[in-house]
């Protein structure tokens, strides 16, 4: 009687996740480069105002780490699309795998890189400050983080930034999976996305982008915001899993 290997889903997902940490390590280099570029751009500042009288003159330069954050969100979006590509899926199926384990390990990987992206994006604001400190035109720093103590600021920043970046990951994964479904979607998804959401908003007010942005951006309660993102992310991941579950691999 032959002895057959018994495996559990957790075991395989764990194996695949570890495997992907090594196999997809290239994405971290792109993150570092992108964040450095974003930091460089951020040194330009986001605005400036000035004034003065006979005795004094002042100029205010505004700086923000938002660009780093936006770059990170786009990065995670694109990485998530890339890992749904045929080549990456085939790599999963070279070893023990089924569609669910491939999806679950991908989701774990996306959560992992979202954490890394969030932390490095937040840390980069300190890098911007340090660089600015060495630039000759400054005397003093003011934080605009209004009436909040530092630990509260960091905690809120991490949670909210992480939520946004995770939405980017889930959206990318969904788009990537959808596009693989049929070559029709390869054309339709970008056209609808760019055309309706972005140009639609610029030309006339038909765009739904504002509604989508308002749904997250104007939410004032942290708990509701986290709930909204969690639901969105889960819905996107679940749809991706459902779609991929019916797809054939290694064709």
């Amino acid at each position: 009687m032959m002895s057959l290997n018994k495996v559990t889903l957790e075991q395989v997902v764990k194996n695949q996740f570890n495997y992907k940490l090594g196999a997809y390590s290239g994405v971290f280099i792109s993150l570092i480069i992108l964040q450095l570029i974003a930091v460089l751009f951020s040194l330009n500042g986001v605005g400036m105002s000035g004034g003065g009288s006979e005795q004094i003159s002042y100029s205010l330069h505004y700086y923000s780490g938002n660009l780093v954050f936006i770059f990170t969100m786009l990065w995670v979006f694109i990485v998530s699309i890339i890992i749904t590509s045929k080549a990456y899926r085939n790599e999963d199926f070279s070893f023990v795998s089924n569609r669910l384990s491939s999806d679950l390990s991908n989701i774990l990987f996306m959560i992992f890189i979202s954490v890394i992206g969030t932390v490095t994006a937040l840390l980069s604001t300190f890098l911007i400050k340090v660089i600015l400190l060495f630039l000759p035109k400054f005397d003093m720093f003011y934080y605009s983080s209004i009436s909040m103590n530092m630990s509260n600021f960091v905690f809120l920043g991490i949670v909210i930034a992480f939520c946004y970046i995770l939405i980017g990951a889930a959206a990318g994964y969904f788009v990537g999976t959808l596009v693989r479904l049929s070559s029709l979607f390869k054309i339709m998804v970008p056209v609808v996305f760019v055309g309706y959401l972005i140009f639609g908003g610029m030309i006339s007010e038909v765009s739904g982008l504002a509604t989508v942005v308002q749904f997250f951006y104007l939410e004032s309660s942290l708990i509701t915001f986290v709930l909204k993102t969690t639901c969105t992310v889960m819905a996107l991941f679940a749809s991706s899993v459902a779609i991929f579950n019916r797809m054939e691999v290694r064709q």
Binding site: N5, V12, Y19, G26, S101
Partner: peptide, 30 residues
């Protein structure tokens, strides 16, 4: 979609793909 069947079978063909980031030694370890 059976993990059990996947763990007990392997298909060797020319579409077997391995990550670019790993070298052959690391692929064997994986």
């Amino acid at each position: 979609n059976s993990l059990f069947a996947s763990a007990n079978s392997i298909l060797v063909d020319d579409q077997m793909a391995f990550p670019i980031a790993l070298n052959l030694g690391e692929v064997l370890e994986a």
